[in-house]
């Protein structure tokens, strides 16, 4: 767990944003939406695992079982 994850999420976000813009310009709005959705899902997977780790850590620290 380090800064790389932040860059990765930001990178995916920027690429998705550019791709959606290009697709939108070419008149493929639907595909643009699709790309955005996929991007959000991919990032969500990363964030969800991170959140899971975080919750586990908190639970371990405060003995909440």
């Amino acid at each position: 767990m380090d800064v790389q994850l932040l860059f990765r999420i930001a990178g995916v976000g920027i690429i998705v944003a550019v791709m959606a813009t290009v697709l939108k310009q070419a008149g493929k709005d639907e595909q643009g939406q699709m790309v955005t959705l996929v991007g959000v899902l991919v990032v969500l997977m990363m964030v969800v695992t991170l959140l899971g780790k975080f919750f586990n850590l908190v639970k371990a620290t405060f003995g909440m079982y």
Partner: peptide
Amino acid sequence: LSGLALVLILM
């Protein structure tokens, strides 16, 4: 862009 995205996701 999808190439780059793939690299980022798999990294």
